[in-house]
Design a protein around this nucleic acid. Structure first.
Length: 112
DNA sequence: TAGGTGACCCGCG
DNA sequence: GCGCGGGCCACCT
């Protein structure tokens, strides 16, 4: 059955699920919020496994520069861009427009 | 068993 | 001010 190794994966998934529509966050922010000192890379790996679990809005998670680095991992390279645009986020050249304003901080919003 | 990779981030030149 | 390389840990072959 389920291995407990998914524990830290689940932490990432739950935080990503808490991201409101029209907002985006970065891997490092989630890593820092969860205390994953290991680095933001582990968060990216969790996203890679997000395909194996239920609805995880990985398209709302982008890198520190607001670039859709993981778009290539979606069903289609344009899927992430279309999804973000569908939420009201403008994306140009694989880059989120007004990323800093759309940035959603888990430590500020999710944290009490 | 061991090695290499990776949806990244930070620091230094 | 900007660009490039190294480093970090976990998963895969």
């Amino acid at each position: 059955m389920n291995s407990e190794k998914e524990n830290y994966f689940d932490w990432v998934y739950q935080v990503v699920r808490e991201i409101p529509a029209g907002r985006v966050t970065s891997y490092g922010a989630i890593a820092h919020f969860l205390g994953l000192k290991s680095g933001a890379r582990m968060v990216g790996y969790a996203m890679n496994a997000s395909h194996t679990v239920n609805d995880v809005p990985a398209h709302r998670v982008v890198n520190r520069k607001g670039l859709l680095t993981g778009k290539h991992h979606f069903a289609t390279p344009t899927q992430m861009e279309e999804l973000l645009r569908s939420e009201g986020i403008h994306v140009e050249n694989d880059q989120v427009i007004d990323f800093e304003s759309r940035f959603w901080s888990p430590e500020k919003e999710l944290k009490p």
